[in-house]
Amino acid sequence: MKKLVNNPVNVVEEMVEGYVRAHPDYIKQLQSNDRALVNARETKENKVGILIGGGSGHEPGFLGYVGEGMADGVAVGNIFASPSPDPILEVTKAIDKGAGVVYLYGNYAGDVMNFGMAAEMADLEEDIKVGMALATDDVASAPKEEKDKRRGIAGEFFIYKAAGAAADFGYDLEEVVRIAKKANQNTRSMGVGTSPCYLPQTGEPSFEIGDNEMEIGLGHHGEPGIEKGPLETADKIADRLVNDILADIEITKGEEVAVLVNGLGSTPKMDLYIVYRRVEQILSERGIKIYRSYVGDYITSLEMGGCSVTLMKLDKELTDTIDHPVNCPMFVQK
């Protein structure tokens, strides 16, 4: 494990410091809590505030998605660990413009507890209305009947995109929550891991895997997946991922989707586009239309190897959110 770091204990602090200094026009750190970052430009009055957050190590997730058209603020946790309620509450106070704040995060025990506690405190102590929408897009993490037990992985990106746009459109808290939840309901992901990442403080691999193996359906913190299998070709992997997704959500001929082929950290863009090529073939064969595609590192796990495929089934409302421009330090869409 070779990292470009100083003392491993300080990686999150130093990353945040570098990030804020690199993009002063975009982002600022709150004085009250240095894990609380908000858009450098004030949130518009009466706009619903969008708050995202989660563990570090998923960059661009999550701090990279603060900016026009996406989130107004982010609470930054330790590596792969939910932020505590404190920075969440501080961001909430900073970005509430009277219309309330929507929390968007992945369905992990830690996040559920910490965001839940912060929401209670915002309500009781600050009188700020808080709405929530959790990402549960990973089909590999629980059976279909238990979708609300599933964890959130790369599909969170589409949920941010949908909610961020909805808030920008001027919708109220309930509407933003509704659209965020609809985005989640319409979104499915599944991934494979080929090599682990290494926690900076332990230097240990996040999971063990043989030279010719891949982990099917792994989580983006290295949580084991459905099964280990022999390493397959890009086409076979794409087949597996897309077929498992399409077995889980009905998308019929003529319907439209947004596609995300997400790299977990060390997988070259070359490989991601090779996977995308097959994803496109499968969807074409089925007559499913691709409205827009995103290929790259959107939500990563440090230097983990592998990728995930995400499909979001679109209707007019979600298509409008996909089209909405975004200007964040780590993601810009015209």
């Binding site: 946790g77 330790n78 660990a81 939910s82 505590s84 309620p85 025990a109 830690g110 910490n114 506690m117």
Partner: peptide
Amino acid sequence: AVGSSVGP
């Protein structure tokens, strides 16, 4: 200091 699951 920790957030995460065990923090709460």
